[in-house]
Design a protein around this nucleic acid. Structure first.
Lengths: 322, 322
DNA sequence: CTGAAAGCGCTTACAG
DNA sequence: CTGAAAGCGCTTACAG
């Protein structure tokens, strides 16, 4: 910028004005500066700009794994919102590891990201308290925060699971299994609660032997149960669980009804197209980013909690009778 | 840092030494500084650090779309390599738009990324020449650069396509279609060349009417050809083309053999499991990132070109006879 | 419409 | 082992 200034015979403040499109520069001066910029191949150094202004022009996003379609859909939606404002997106994968979550979060905050969006792996976010008080908006996605009050965007986990189970009950199923991850995981716990609630409303209880983790393995175990205790239907709590169960069911002697939580590519192309509880990860990412920008625009109201709805998509696997 | 220094009654240089684990600080002093850091909740400002050192501690990655599994696998591999070095990853999706590619590239370079990895959408990269001469390593992935010499990591596109077609020829197919995107796209063009080469080696030519873009639509058109001109097999040039063709083939009266370029999730779970030409996008991302770090470590040798191999995975759809 | 001065928070390049 | 000074390249907050 100093070189441009001396080439155009102006001060660096005037160069700064031209580079940033600020008003108050005569057309003649602006043209001279523009020519010098082009001639020298000048490009603004945004690191220096960030240091002075205190804002990096970047959003930080921490997810479990970018290679998982659910999270990459979120990342893409967040990127689109950031990009509209000329901001960039910094993404980190924490692999369900609270230590990595924390390390990544602090690393991004040291970069002075304008806001931090986080799908938390840990269950204690008090380490973020100093940042929250320092005016960096933090938004939680998919899972709630612990120990700090912050904007949050969740799915209707319990409602979606309930809808799936109610659908299976309507087909006449009596024994409906639940295949999910450990209910320590927030979303798995909520979906299990929805499953239980649907059964309770129907006057049934959920036998412990029908509630399982480790999709592929436990589906085989369920199929090996004696007739009468064997489930005729199952709710799979996420896309990985569903795919694991489908692999195990491929060799099943008798058909088993299946509803999966989360839609997935090619669900409609399998031999028996898969009925799913669908939602929009794109909406989750977009809404979270918009909440962050609202805070940056000065909204200092109480933390906001938004819920993304779920809907049943009927394709075939959930309509198999008992 | 200044506050820490005065709290610990040392200079900021000493605080800097402690924060960065540099040697030459007595244990007593280090402990006093450490206590002040903990007490004040100090965290280093990495933007200031980057400005002074000239390095952001970040890798920039430009891809077509993070939500596409091929690219998210690359992004994840790059992130893992960057993360080992304490670096972060900034990702941008350019949607096959040369203007967005350029805008994103310049935006990342203004942030002083240590290196830029790019899956190019455009066909003129001379706009990067000033940066290359300024010692920012740039690595091209999946498609070659134009007008600048740079490290490049490509798939064995032609070889992979040739392998797929040779496999279909061995099954006795005489009329093998090619379903791909416009051959303006580098990878599509290379795969088409491999297809042609395999047919030429077998003493056959590729009739123009069997070479098509727009997978779903043109698969239907091919099926509507009169017997004798109708293909009995097809090579699909990428994962999107394959899925499009599979949707169209679902209602086909007679089975058609199919080999797809790119593996994809659930390929083995479809009614007829899909034979594919498989490769490793993870290797592509990892190798590209390693090349970038080798340059940063001082390697100033000639641009390197690496090729990722392809292999045929036999699953069923490619073994359907004519 | 234009510019001089200060400063963002660190690291560099020294000196002692 | 420790620190004083300069400077990275901008923007801020002024003054004229």
């Amino acid at each position: 910028m100093r070189d441009v200034a001396s080439a155009a015979d102006v001060s660096i403040k005037t160069v700064s004005r031209v580079v940033n499109g600020e008003p108050g520069v005569s057309a003649v001066t602006a043209a001279r500066v523009g020519a010098a910029i082009a001639h020298l191949g000048f490009a603004r150094n945004d690191v220096a700009r960030s240091l002075r202004s205190g804002r990096a022009g970047a959003l930080g996003l921490i997810i479990e794994d970018v290679a998982n379609p659910f999270y990459s859909a979120i990342a893409r939606a967040v990127e689109d919102v950031a990009s509209e404002r000329g901001h960039i997106l910094i993404t980190g994968s924490c692999e369900e590891d609270p230590t990595r979550e924390r390390r990544l979060a602090l690393r991004l905050l040291r970069r002075m990201v304008d806001a931090l969006l986080i799908v938390p792996a840990g269950s204690d976010h008090r380490y973020l308290l100093p940042e929250l008080s320092i005016d960096t908006p933090i938004v939680f996605l998919d899972r709630p925060s612990h120990g700090v009050a912050a904007d949050t965007v969740l799915l209707d986990n319990a409602g979606g699971a309930r809808t799936g189970v109610e659908h299976l009950l309507r087909q006449g199923h009596e024994r409906i299994a639940f295949i999910g991850d450990s209910s320590d995981l927030y979303t798995a716990g909520e979906r299990l609660a929805g499953y239980r609630a649907a059964l309770a409303d129907a006057g049934r209880e959920a036998p412990d032997e029908l509630i399982r983790a480790h999709a592929a393995h436990s589906t085989q175990a369920l199929l090996a149960l004696p007739r009468g205790r064997r489930p005729t239907a199952m709710l799979c709590a996420n896309n990985r669980n569903t795919i694991g169960a489908l692999r195990a069911l491929r060799d099943a002697p008798a058909p088993v009804a299946l509803v999966g939580f989360d839609d997935f590519e090619l669900a409609d192309m399998l031999a028996t197209p898969v009925t799913v509880v669908r939602h929009s990860p794109e909406d989750m990412g977009r809404i979270a980013a918009e909440l962050a920008y609202r805070r940056l625009a000065g909204d200092a109201g109480r933390p906001v909690h938004r819920t993304i709805p779920c809907e049943l998509v009927i394709r075939g696997s959930g309509e198999v009778g008992p």
